[in-house]
Deep mutational scan, measured.
Amino acid sequence: SKDTIRINGIDIDVKDLHEEWKRLVEEALKRGDEELAIELLERALKE
C-alpha cells in the first residue's frame, strides 16, 4: 500500500491511516467517487 493517495490531483499523506480506511478510500477512488473518498478521509483523520 502506498503512503499517499491522489484525490483531485492532490497527493494526501495517508501513511498514518489505518489500513482499513486506506482500502475504503482506494475503493471509492476506483469507482470514481472522489466525494466519498474525501468524506472517508476526513472521517479517518478524525479518529
Rank of each mutant, 00 (worst) to 15 (best):
S1Y: 07
S1T: 13
S1K: 11
S1F: 10
S1E: 11
S1Q: 11
S1W: 05
S1N: 15
S1I: 14
K2I: 14
K2N: 14
K2T: 12
K2F: 12
K2H: 12
K2E: 13
D3I: 10
D3L: 01
D3M: 01
D3P: 07
T4A: 07
T4S: 09
T4Y: 07
T4M: 11
I5R: 03
R6D: 02
R6S: 10
R6F: 06
I7V: 10
I7E: 01
I7T: 02
I7Q: 02
N8L: 08
G9Q: 05
G9K: 04
G9H: 05
I10Y: 10
I10M: 12
I10F: 06
I10K: 15
D11M: 09
D11W: 06
D11L: 08
D11V: 09
I12S: 02
I12A: 03
I12F: 15
I12T: 04
I12C: 07
D13S: 12
D13N: 14
D13A: 08
D13I: 08
D13H: 11
D13Q: 09
K15P: 04
K15L: 09
K15Y: 09
D16G: 15
D16K: 10
D16M: 13
D16E: 10
D16I: 09
L17V: 10
L17Q: 01
H18P: 12
H18S: 15
H18K: 15
H18I: 10
H18N: 14
H18E: 14
H18Q: 09
E19K: 04
E19G: 06
E19Y: 09
E19L: 04
E20I: 08
E20G: 10
E20Q: 08
W21P: 10
W21L: 15
W21A: 15
W21F: 11
K22D: 06
K22T: 14
K22V: 15
R23Y: 12
R23T: 13
R23F: 07
L24N: 02
L24S: 03
L24R: 06
L24F: 04
L24P: 01
V25M: 12
V25H: 00
V25Q: 00
V25G: 00
V25F: 06
E26C: 03
E26A: 09
E26Y: 10
E26I: 13
E26V: 11
E27L: 06
E27M: 06
E27Q: 09
E27F: 01
A28W: 02
A28T: 02
A28H: 02
A28E: 00
L29T: 01
L29D: 00
K30V: 12
K30M: 12
K30H: 12
R31E: 10
R31K: 12
R31L: 10
R31P: 00
R31M: 11
G32S: 03
G32H: 05
G32E: 03
D33E: 10
D33V: 02
D33G: 04
D33P: 01
D33F: 07
D33Q: 09
D33M: 10
E34Y: 15
E34K: 13
E34W: 14
E34G: 09
E34P: 12
E34M: 14
E34H: 15
E35D: 13
E35H: 12
E35T: 14
E35I: 14
L36H: 09
L36R: 09
L36S: 07
L36W: 07
A37W: 02
A37V: 07
A37E: 00
I38P: 00
I38Y: 13
E39W: 03
E39N: 14
E39P: 00
E39K: 15
L40W: 04
L40A: 01
L41E: 00
L41Y: 06
L41W: 04
L41H: 01
E42H: 08
E42P: 00
E42G: 08
R43N: 06
R43P: 00
A44F: 13
A44N: 03
L45F: 10
L45R: 14
K46Q: 11
K46P: 03
E47S: 08
E47H: 06
E47P: 07
E47N: 08
E47D: 12
